[in-house]
Amino acid sequence: MIFTVATFAILVTISLGLARALMGPTVYDRILAVNMVGTKTVLLIAVFAVLSGRTNMIDIALTYALINLVGVVAVLKFVEQGNFYTDGEDD
């Protein structure tokens, strides 16, 4: 029961994050929205894995969290420096 409620809550949160990604208005709103949708996808997979008894899916949720972090760091590096080849220390 509680996992079903959690699934609904996560889906509502994803829709809110999607709305923020669509409306903006600043770049950081959208980056945060993407990060949130990613985090909620991790949670959705974890909750769904417990609900359906396929607990090996939790490993996938963990890897999603890692990929999400790397992606957001790359996006922030791009926004901050405009490229990927300077290290950002020398300006």
Binding site: I14, A21, I31, G38, F48
Partner: peptide, 21 residues
């Protein structure tokens, strides 16, 4: 185009969720 890339990322996350289901 930056917003488009962000939305592509969200699109991928949604489809990944679908594949898990």
């Amino acid at each position: 185009l930056f917003v488009v890339i962000m939305l592509f990322s969200i699109f991928s996350l949604h489809s990944a969720g679908l594949f898990v289901v």
